[in-house]
Design a protein around this nucleic acid. Structure first.
Lengths: 192, 192
DNA sequence: CTGTTAATGCAACATCAGATGCGTTAGTGT
DNA sequence: ACACTAACGCATCTGATGTTGCATTAACAG
């Protein structure tokens, strides 16, 4: 059971098969809830044989985990550059919330795929580290201006994680002003 | 598909069947990872027919959600009374972490059941509200001493959620000193 | 105590997940 | 260009899920 879809011959056909499978999953995720997607459907739409899906990914959880890893960085909001950390963080946090709210409450494709992947032990630590690196960009800029002190880990802990928790635990859309509340809390702590 | 296992005749046999099924699931959860538990196993160990399990709970996700709702309040750490909010919160947070660390990383029965239940839309908001009420006890005591200002929701957002996130996202046990860090952060914010 | 019927037990069925043996295709090193 | 073999396609099989019709049991109202 591969943690990622690691193969020895990564070029050519294997790469095409992987892209076709992930694209089919991504397309199906926009049409129906995640746990109603069957491997047979992915096989039919992608043209990839069902047994290949099981051999490479071990099943839907593996597929979803691979998709989350592959698409997360592309689809994550890019940290804006506004010359002011508070403004940058607010814009970024609001975009995170908007992404989560783009789908029915509790049905965010990324968040669902992430949880499925995490629970099945197929999401490597690298993924979360990658997200932290993106945040570090904003913090580094602010530090160069003598603004911030806390780490990217703290930023995730104080701002990002509560946003995800709200998306998970509440049946309603994540309120947009949660972004400002959490960012202000982060900066309050950063000031000392 | 019942959200909870709601029936019209809740007494007598139905109650016994429900208890037998939940007890069997709880027992099996201590023996093997959650997603290796089959409905057939639960049926065999509990003496409840498999078709009954599907009719009342709709499948394993529903069963796990019902179990999480039924057992969460009993198994949650009771807020200690120490006359000092910081001490109380630290003891409580350490107990939460110890509970999560009592099993292999990422395999906490409660947390797994909660996530399965949430993802399948079978965990009512009441559950989370119940947890918040428990926290409110500590905060009320402190408020009576003129100590705290923040709400139970803030306490969950600042302390509880990051602990759960650590249990989920890290392959290692949750470090015990995370409790102190988060509690100190909460009190820093409470002071103003 | 008695009748009604909700809830369960039982059995059969359809569907899906996951695994496997084997032939075929195509990526890669030489 | 060629040979080697990883990766894929195909067919098949086992076991789990989820559903349904029908008989049986027992909760609860009168």
């Amino acid at each position: 059971m591969p943690i990622d879809s690691v193969t020895e011959r990564m070029g050519g056909r294997s790469a095409r098969v992987r892209e076709a499978a992930l694209a089919a999953v991504a397309a199906l995720m926009t049409e129906k809830p995640l746990d109603e997607i069957t491997a047979a459907e992915v096989a039919e739409r992608s043209g990839v044989n069902r047994s290949t899906l099981h051999r490479r990914w071990g099943g839907m959880p593996g597929l979803l985990a691979d998709l989350a890893i592959d698409r997360l960085n592309d689809e994550s909001p890019t940290p804006p550059d506004a010359g002011d950390l508070r403004a940058e963080l607010r814009v970024w946090a609001r975009e995170v919330i908007a992404t989560l709210n783009a789908h029915e409450p509790g049905r965010s494709p990324f968040l669902s795929a992430l949880l499925v992947g995490v629970r099945s032990g197929r999401i490597p630590a690298e993924l979360w580290q990658g997200r932290l690196r993106v945040l570090q960009v904003m913090l580094d800029r602010a530090a160069a201006r003598g603004e911030a002190v806390l780490s990217a880990g703290d930023l995730a802990e104080i701002v990002l994680v509560p946003i995800y928790a709200a998306a998970l635990l509440s049946p309603d859309p994540v309120p947009a002003d949660l972004a400002d509340r959490l960012v202000d809390r982060f900066l309050t702590l950063a000031r000392g």
